[in-house]
Write a protein that binds this DNA or RNA. Structure first.
Lengths: 141, 141
DNA sequence: CAACGATACTTGTTGCAACAAATATTATCC
DNA sequence: GGATAATATTTGTTGCAACAAGTATCGTTG
C-alpha cells in the first residue's frame, strides 16, 4: 500500500473518531437537559414504535442503534423515572415486555421538535447532496 | 424546512450514531488485545510525540482526540501499567510532566503496524476519493 | 510583601457500561 | 415424561467517565 493511501486512511480514521466524540458530547449535553441519556432515549423511541403491547428486552437490544449488553438495568432506570413499565408475558414467563408509560410518551412528544433542532444544529450546515454522501458512505462501514 | 430535508437530516444523524458505535466497538476490541483502552493509546501517542521531556497534563488534555476531563486517573493507569511516569516540574511545582517509559515506547512500536491494519480493516473498503470526501465533510462538523 | 486571585492538578462521589455467572422458564430429545 | 439443552432475563463485579469540590503552587497588585 502506498504512503499516501496509508496517510489517507489514518487521517480519515482520526476525523471519524473526532467527529464521534463531538457528536457524543452534543447528544449527551442535549439529553441531559431532558434528564435522560441518549441510550435511554433510544429505548423510549423503540417502545413508542412498539405500541401498547410493548417490546421484549431482547428485541430492544437488537433494535438499538448503539448496542448495550445490559438492557435490564437500562430499563430499571426508565422504570425508576416513571417512563416505562415492566410486564411479564403470560404466554412465556421468561419474557419481560417493556411498555412506555403516558409520562414517557409525553416526554417523547415534547422532545420531538427539539430533536429536529438538534439534527439541524449538528448537520444543518451541510447541503442535502453532502448529507446523502455522508449517510451512504458511513452506511457502508 | 421540507419534509425531505428533515428526513435526510434524521437518517444521516442515525447513520452517524450507528457508525459511531461500530467504530467504538472495533477500537475497543482492538485495544483490549493490547491491554489498554483507546483513550490510553491516545495519551501514549501524545507522549511519544512529546519526546523525553514529556508533556504536562493540561496539554495532554488539549491534544486528545476524544476529550476527557480527568487526566489524573487516566495517567494513574498508565503509571500503574508501567507505560508512563510522572515527574513534577522543577520550575513550576504545580506542573506534572508525564513521560512515556521504554516499556510504553515498546508497546507503541509493536502496535504501529497492527494499527495500520485496523485502519485498513475499518476503512479499506472505501476508495481514496470517498475517503477524502468523508474526511473533509466530517471535519466540517 | 502580604493578600487575593489564577493556575495545575488531585480527590470524592456518582452513574453508567462491559463481561461473566446465575436464575428462571421453556423447548427438545431419547 | 424426565433429563438436558436452549432461551430470556437478572445479578455480581469491575473499571471507566463525568462533574464538583479540594489542595498546592504561582502570579499579581496594592
Amino acid at each position: 500500500m502506498s504512503v499516501q493511501r496509508r496517510q489517507l486512511l489514518e487521517s480519515t480514521f482520526v476525523a471519524l473518531v473526532t467527529a464521534n466524540d463531538r457528536l457524543n458530547r452534543a447528544v449527551a449535553a442535549f439529553m441531559k437537559t431532558w434528564g435522560i441519556t441518549g441510550t435511554q432515549y433510544n429505548v423510549l423511541r423503540i417502545l413508542r414504535g412498539a405500541g401498547p403491547d410493548g417490546q421484549r428486552s431482547q428485541r430492544i437490544a437488537d433494535d438499538m442503534i448503539s448496542k448495550v449488553p445490559d438492557i435490564t438495568r437500562l430499563v430499571d432506570r426508565l422504570v425508576t423515572a416513571g417512563l416505562a413499565e415492566r410486564r411479564t408475558d403470560a404466554d412465556d414467563r421468561r419474557v419481560v415486555k417493556v411498555v412506555v408509560t403516558a409520562s414517557g410518551l409525553d416526554l417523547l412528544a415534547r422532545m420531538d421538535e427539539p430533536i429536529r433542532a438538534l439534527h439541524e444544529q449538528v448537520l444543518g450546515g451541510m447541503t442535502s447532496r453532502d448529507l446523502k454522501i455522508v449517510r451512504d458512505l458511513l452506511g457502508e462501514l
